[in-house]
């Protein structure tokens, strides 16, 4: 039996195809303006990758902010549910999931069975999401992948006062003018983001183990900053952390299809 999980995020659509034989496709697609058409294309590509025909697909479950645009009359689930299911399958010790995506941040507390106990979201303000770091990297004229790396070389903690992405851009520019090393500025940006994400997650009560998912989990600077802010020795990071929502959706689809 073959099922699909789709995560229609603000910046990327992720698709996971699953069958009793395991995962057979992981596809990521950057959509254009037409979300519905992009989503259809993403699903088609995933089917091609897994060598499956559309009619073999038993069920589709979609999550993410754009989930209503998913093709094929899918069942819709919220992001916390999908995150919880996806992470518990990969890292069963997880009790708190922190998901930082392009346009939102989320803290989810889960049971050992992957059920959601409680969650807190930070959305619609770029300062609490990955967009903040992306924008700061641009101001520093750094590629996002270097941006995290370079923060690990920081020698001092410079404060960032601005709480808004737009104002922080000017603050970064004046720090550059004041000859502050880019590594220090980068660390300040990561610390600021981590403290906002941490504060949000504290609302659900942080219980170990804590896992980080979403695109920013690839950023070593952010991972370190978050560990520092939460005083954690270890932060679990699954493989392909940006696909956890889609995996969760696929697992839910499978569950629904067999029952």
């Amino acid at each position: 039996m073959v099922v699909a999980g789709m995560d229609l995020g603000a910046k990327a659509i992720k698709v996971v195809i699953l069958s009793e034989k395991g995962v057979s496709a992981k596809v990521k697609l950057f959509p254009d303006l037409d979300m519905a058409q992009s989503a259809r294309k993403a699903l088609e590509e995933a089917l091609v990758q897994s060598g499956t025909e559309l009619h073999e697909l038993k069920r589709i479950v979609a999550t993410g902010t754009g989930r209503s645009a998913a093709p094929g009359k899918p069942a819709l689930v919220t992001e916390p549910l999908a995150d919880a299911k996806g992470i518990i399958a990969l890292l069963p010790l997880t009790r708190t999931v922190i998901d930082v995506g392009a346009e939102e941040g989320r803290g989810v507390k889960i049971t050992p069975q992957g059920e959601v106990v409680d969650f807190a979201v930070n959305e619609k303000c770029a300062a609490g999401s990955g967009a903040f770091m992306e924008s700061m990297a641009r101001s520093l004229e750094l590629k996002i992948e270097d941006f995290g790396e370079i923060s690990l070389k920081a020698t001092q903690a410079v404060p960032m006062n601005a709480q808004c992405t737009v104002f922080a851009e000017s603050e970064v520019v004046s720090l550059i003018h004041a000859n502050t090393p880019k590594s220090d500025i980068s660390r300040a940006v990561h610390d600021a983001t981590a403290s906002r994400i941490a504060a949000m997650t504290r609302r659900v009560g942080i219980e170990k183990e804590v896992a980080l998912i979403g695109g920013v989990a690839y950023n070593p600077g952010f991972v370190e900053a978050l560990k520092r802010t939460l005083s954690l020795e270890t932060l679990l990071i699954p493989d392909h952390p940006d696909f956890i929502g889609a995996l969760g959706a696929a697992l839910i689809a499978y569950e629904q299809a067999v029952n």
Binding site: V23, V27, K28, Q37, K41, H240
Partner: peptide, 28 residues
């Protein structure tokens, strides 16, 4: 019914990711 997670997620680490953009033709 309890799912058999290890079986379902086998190949999670090893299976490659395919990335596309909607307006370009094909895989980038």
């Amino acid at each position: 019914m309890i799912l058999d997670f290890p079986q379902l997620i086998s190949q999670w680490e090893t299976l490659p990711v395919h990335v596309f953009t909607a307006h370009e033709k094909g895989e980038i």
